[in-house]
Amino acid sequence: MSIIKAEGIFKTYNETSVPVHALNGVDLEINNGEFMAIVGPSGCGKTTLLNITGGLDLPDKGKIFIDGTNLGGLSSKELIDFRLHNIGFVFQASNLIPVLTVKENIEFIMMLQNRPKAERDGKVEELLNAVGIIGKADYKPGQLSGGQQQRVAVARALATNPRYIIADEPTANLDSASTRELLDLMAEMNEKYGTTFVFATHDQRVMDRAKRIVTLEDGKITGDKTISK
């Protein structure tokens, strides 16, 4: 069953003197429970595509459906709410609110969802355990290593019980040990909760773990292969 369906996506940035055609007709279907990577040279449109599939940006042309909902048909308020309840985000760096502790960073997003205190506490506990940073619950993000911060970001992305997590270069600033740990974690969560993960990455280590690799060049999909391991 497909969770994401992108149909004929075009996106042009007009802010510069020469318009940049970042996406030129992308069709993409992502199935529930996938663990996939979007790869391609720098500037090929990976981030743009990821943002559009995550409801952070809207295409100039084409349609994007998540779980059957046409994102283009939502008001900006509805879109924000939709993201809160359906999509998890892990960015390249500085994912966390610096003034909140690790525990609060995870709890806060559930507060936005108005979930009761007992439920939040249980979930924080569970996720801190799952991502292996239980002893650092009261640390501020600045007191954690880059790898630990990314693991907290994954925990936060999972906290809302999303069907779908997008991660833009989540390993870009990590050493190989941290990268491996983070990938192990995400793969485990993918298995355990059935959460769909979509990465944009240059990182060979990520590609090695992905179960499907979509290649993007000049805003067009030029390759799509499923890896059976």
Partner: peptide, 10 residues
């Protein structure tokens, strides 16, 4: 930007 992305409304 991140707060809005995560779902903090206006």
């Amino acid at each position: 930007g991140m707060l809005t992305a995560l779902g903090m409304n206006k």
